[in-house]
Design a protein around this nucleic acid. Sequence first.
DNA 1: ACCTGAACACCGTTCAAGT
DNA 2: ACCTGAACACCGTTCAAGT
Lengths: 219, 219
Amino acid sequence: MSALVSAALEVVEREGLDALSMRRLAEQLGVQAASLYWHVQSKEQVLDLLADELLDRVRTEALPADLDRVATGEVAWTDALTETAVNYRAFLRCRRDAARIIAGRFVGGISLARVLEPILGVLRAGGLSAHDAAYAVYTIIVYVQGFVLHESSPLSASNAEGMERSDALRGVKAAIGALPEDEFPHLAESVDALTEANLEERFRFGLDRLIDGLSAHVR
Amino acid sequence: MSALVSAALEVVEREGLDALSMRRLAEQLGVQAASLYWHVQSKEQVLDLLADELLDRVRTEALPADLDRVATGEVAWTDALTETAVNYRAFLRCRRDAARIIAGRFVGGISLARVLEPILGVLRAGGLSAHDAAYAVYTIIVYVQGFVLHESSPLSASNAEGMERSDALRGVKAAIGALPEDEFPHLAESVDALTEANLEERFRFGLDRLIDGLSAHVR
DNA sequence: ACCTGAACACCGTTCAAGT
DNA sequence: ACCTGAACACCGTTCAAGT
């Protein structure tokens, strides 16, 4: 990994993606901002390199080790797929702003290929056609990235001025509670589930439904 | 709708979200940038207002008119849900940068409540518990937003220099084709489905699997 | 081959001052 | 109640010039 990418990664990890400017990145490298343009074409390209590096870490850190044991019948393909998605979410959650960096752009490089290949293998072993496996892996990725993007998105400025996320959610809950119940009967019933702070269960619910649906599609 | 919000919406529609600066917005209103801060606390708040306005339009423009005919048994809940998701995607696709604006922040206001209420009604009529209906609507929203975010995301700077999206995809396809086939056998089989330019069918595939899974969960 | 200094055309935000 | 002018501390990017 180039010094530039590792410096960029360090800035993002310590100060967040919004703090990553060409000037800040140059400072991290002990160099002037203008110098970066000898190594790189634009800030966009820095973000591409960052996304590619993160994708590489997805492969080494988030892909379960036993994906190849699906083809041998030792592991159920639905379980392998679930574990992959759960690990991917965990990865995106723990590396600062990783979801924003990866989801915001489409880098069709070798790193993506290396991530997709084993997952496609799991789906093929599960009995999906090459066509459906492509669609399925895309769907899973979109769901996981969309979920993490949502759960780590800033709350609206109005209800988030330096607040804890859970406090802000309590505010939303209170606001829903104050709505006329005859106009919003279903919302009133579902408010607790909608404003839970722990999204673990919610993630699993959607993922399980999705994989159930894929499983039913094979039969 | 306030003049400020409608001006902001106009700038976004004509020049894109990236062109929306406080200075550009002020110009649109025939005023100095500093003046905006009498009406609004920050740019963040402008984006919140924008998201809220768009959510209001989701309700009036994207929610199917016959959602209440699910409760009477005239319309199948799965069909109503599918139509809602399809319409929502179409809405996000046709209003410039709407996905980025809405997905990027969580505005727990009345506009969101008005969107969620009828969808929750559909799910409740379909037999889901209040708890599961909450999870299900969240899952659908995450999937649709994640999908549109992905399909309208910029391609990496390296393969998108002023290129058409379809040309860039052809480039990705060629790159995958050049990979050693013994190392990437599944990718080689799935490359066509992965690099299709038309995402209509792909969207429906994931959505159908998801709603199938929800449907199976009820029984 | 790699870096600097200086500049250009921008940002979001604040604040005293105006009407 | 609403707006301006000027300023502050930033941006990404270019380019001649340095070593």
